[in-house]
Amino acid sequence: MSDITIGNVERAIKTTADTVLANQQYFSDLDGIAGDGDFGASLASGFRLIDADLPEIDKSSIGNMLLKISMIITKNVGGCSGPIWGTGFMRAAMLTKEKQEIGLADLEQMVGAAIEGIKARGGADLGDKTLLDSLIPIHEKLKEHAEKGSSPAVALRDAAEVAERKMEEAKALQPRRGRQSFVGERATGTPDPGMVAIACILQDWCEQFGVERTPQAKELTQRSV
């Protein structure tokens, strides 16, 4: 089944850029609690260019578009986020170089490939309190829906729900990898900024694609520290 078009993917990227740019200060403030306070600014430096370049980017296939996105991120972002987010987009791009449309099964594989790339690049895994603690359960949820033949809308709603719940659950964890690991137990009780970003992005995708979902966490509803 192919029900996600290249236009949908472009819109999702545009929405992601809007989310990252609108929440730049918020993400940096979250990072300042237990990290070094540059997460929002770092990510925004890449997505500002993506936002500007998106209309002109190569859209001959979903993969070619995502490859350009990954290159913009890798080239411009730096910090921890550049290699992590850039690698994720690049791995997803590799699976869709020939595709103009994808189904949930493709999307599930793209997210799976992105996760493997991110694990290899940063050396983190499930339970280390990084964005992988969101992406891995999201991937499982997508796989479940792909097997059931669900609609992308249902899968997106559930993915956003998983992202919000995992973000809440991970607050109690002590980070072992990623930028928060520098501070050890002092980060316990604070949300991981990367996980908050994933939850915000998915919630904004829901709104953009007309999927009804009401977030509960103040990290999503207030978007301020």
């Binding site: 306070g37 770092s42 080239k75 730096g78 921890c80």
Partner: peptide, 12 residues
Amino acid sequence: QGAVFAAPPVDA
């Protein structure tokens, strides 16, 4: 050098 407290990008 990257931004303040952020590693320089791969390209640099």
